Computed example of a mutant assay.
Amino acid sequence: MKKNIILLFAIILVVSCGTKHNQEQEEKSQAETTPAIITAGGTITEIVHALGHGDAIVATDRTSTYPAKMQELPSIGYRNQIQAEGILSLKPDWILVEENYLNNDVLTQLKNSGKKVFVLEKPQSEETAVALITKIGEIFEEKEKADVLIEQLNKDLEALSVFKEQNKEQPKVAFIMSRGPEMVFLAGKDTFAEAMIALSGAQPVAVEFEGLKPLTPEALPALNPDYILLFESGFQASGGKEGLRSIQGITATTAWKKDQLIAMDGHYLSSFGPRMGQAAIDLFQKTHP
């Protein structure tokens, strides 16, 4: 009996060691076959990480602020600063880049380098967010994980719909981008700001221009928004509310008089990635107290 017990333990030990060895070999094999990745575009970076491949990213751009540890990686720069030579010197296997983020010459150089280059659309709606998650899931052969992200996004948007049904008020919201007293821009049509404000159940201020336009002294008093929305970084760089006082016309608005200035993380607000629904809920709650 004693011999049988000893034999049984010996068999378990051998099997256990063999299983551990196989797992280690499998992990080593996966590490060796995982491509080195460079991302250009914060939404792409967030999705790649959410799919479980963040450790394969060897460098990224300045907009990739989530998760925070991505900013510890070597930076390839920002938009027009980015050069093909800098990217290629980091020896990536794959390059995932947001459409229209790099200039055409740089993109052509990357495509001619022999590296795998994926050019992906920047989402600005529920449909394009789902499409991007699906596409990146296909690239990494992670359909199940992509489906989980999409399912959670849909749940968030369903919750948002309930909130909007319960409170149908549509306060006017203006998004301004402040880079100092002399560099303040107002968001117009076809911008992430217009899309996010509308998604959140508020009303973007009515303007006729597209994109971002320098703010004129008479614009804010004429539009008179109930809320003014900014990136957190711009709010802080301007010196908070008192620093924003120097923006001409801002003190005449309802938003200023009622202390209804909203500062949100830039990537969270504008990325339209997996957390898009959460960001819209947060904005709804800030504009529908």
Rank of each mutant, 00 (worst) to 15 (best):
4 N>R: 14
11 I>C: 11
11 I>Y: 08
11 I>A: 12
14 V>Y: 02
14 V>K: 05
16 S>Y: 13
18 G>K: 04
20 K>W: 15
20 K>R: 15
24 E>G: 14
25 Q>A: 10
27 E>W: 02
29 S>R: 13
30 Q>P: 00
36 A>P: 02
37 I>N: 01
39 T>C: 06
42 G>Y: 05
43 T>G: 02
48 V>L: 01
52 G>I: 13
52 G>N: 10
53 H>S: 07
56 A>F: 04
58 V>Q: 04
63 T>Y: 03
66 Y>S: 10
69 K>W: 15
69 K>L: 12
72 E>Q: 15
73 L>V: 07
75 S>M: 10
76 I>T: 03
76 I>D: 09
80 N>V: 15
85 E>C: 00
87 I>F: 11
95 I>W: 06
98 E>T: 10
100 N>Q: 11
102 L>D: 01
103 N>T: 05
108 T>H: 11
112 N>M: 09
113 S>R: 09
115 K>P: 06
116 K>H: 11
116 K>T: 15
118 F>I: 10
120 L>H: 00
121 E>T: 10
121 E>F: 00
121 E>S: 04
125 S>C: 06
126 E>W: 04
131 A>G: 00
131 A>R: 05
136 I>F: 00
137 G>N: 03
139 I>C: 02
142 E>S: 12
143 K>P: 10
154 N>L: 04
156 D>S: 05
157 L>E: 05
159 A>N: 09
161 S>K: 13
164 K>P: 01
166 Q>G: 11
166 Q>I: 09
170 Q>I: 12
170 Q>A: 14
173 V>Q: 08
177 M>Y: 14
181 P>V: 14
183 M>V: 04
184 V>R: 01
186 L>Y: 01
187 A>W: 07
191 T>N: 00
195 A>H: 08
198 A>K: 15
198 A>N: 12
205 V>I: 13
208 E>N: 14
218 E>M: 05
219 A>P: 08
221 P>S: 04
221 P>D: 05
226 D>R: 06
227 Y>I: 14
230 L>D: 01
232 E>S: 13
234 G>L: 14
235 F>T: 03
236 Q>L: 12
239 G>V: 08
240 G>C: 11
243 G>S: 01
243 G>D: 05
243 G>P: 12
246 S>Y: 05
247 I>N: 10
249 G>S: 08
254 T>L: 02
257 K>I: 12
260 Q>W: 09
262 I>M: 09
266 G>L: 08
268 Y>P: 13
269 L>D: 00
273 G>F: 06
274 P>I: 13
277 G>P: 13
279 A>I: 12
286 K>G: 07
